[in-house]
């Protein structure tokens, strides 16, 4: 990062202050989301051994499948970062491509997850089977819900930029979205570790 100072007029300063304020507020909201997931993790930690005669993690987790999911989400976090670089360089076309790839990878992740869920339900291992399965579906499912909201948000943003160009508040919202998307990848690291890796070891 170079250190040249940039001159701004008062309207731009106000815009920047507004963006900073919103970014801080959104970061604060993300911290509350951390606590939300923490409670789900705590619940999972307390209940994961209560399989009530049903299957535990080792029986139902398909590790190579989960690794693919993890790589998809991680890559989408990377392409989201590339999108933010394109925003600051004002490269609209590169931005839209990066956003589209992020969306595609996120959608692929979500589809794999839904497929895995469906498989479990069809086999009779749904969330009503045991406390372990309730907490598994809820923890992983809440993350999936967040991903769904993120994809919807991304699609809406992408459409707005496509139609109206790269206005200041679009830049601000992309910044917020990227915080959200990176945050979801971080939560996934812990799901991957605590639920899946610890489940099979």
């Amino acid at each position: 990062m170079n250190n040249e100072a940039v001159a701004l007029n008062s309207a731009e300063i106000l815009e920047q202050e507004n963006t900073n304020k919103t970014m801080f507020g959104f970061w604060l909201y993300l911290m509350t989301d951390c606590v939300l997931f923490a409670v789900l993790f705590a619940t999972y930690a307390v209940l994961h051994k209560n399989t009530f005669g049903g299957p535990g993690g080792a029986e139902i987790f398909n590790m190579p499948y989960i690794l693919v999911e993890t790589m998809l989400l991680l890559t989408s976090s990377f392409t989201c970062g590339l999108a933010m670089l394109a925003v600051h360089k004002k490269q609209r076309k590169a931005l839209l491509i990066a956003l589209a790839i992020t969306f595609g990878l996120g959608l692929a992740f979500l589809s794999m997850e839904l497929f895995e869920f469906r498989h479990l339900v069809v086999e009779g291992n749904s969330w009503t089977r045991s406390a372990f399965l309730s907490s598994y579906f809820t923890l992983v499912g809440t993350h999936g819900l967040h991903i769904t909201v993120g994809l919807f948000w991304l699609a809406t943003l992408g459409y707005q930029i496509f139609k109206n160009g790269l206005k200041q508040h679009a830049v601000k919202r992309l910044g917020l979205f990227s915080l959200f998307w990176h945050f979801l990848d971080i939560i996934w690291i812990f799901i991957f570790t605590v639920v899946y890796l610890m489940g099979v070891s």
């Binding site: 250190n3 920047q16 670089l85």
Partner: peptide
């Protein structure tokens, strides 16, 4: 008013930092 880049670009990385983060994350995973 001159404003230092930190305020303006808080949140902005470079291609290098994103690549580093990406590769490190893959390795750790």
């Amino acid at each position: 008013v001159t404003i230092k880049p930190e305020i303006r670009d808080a949140g902005l990385g470079s291609l290098g930092s994103y690549l580093t983060g990406f590769v490190l994350s893959i390795i750790l995973t």
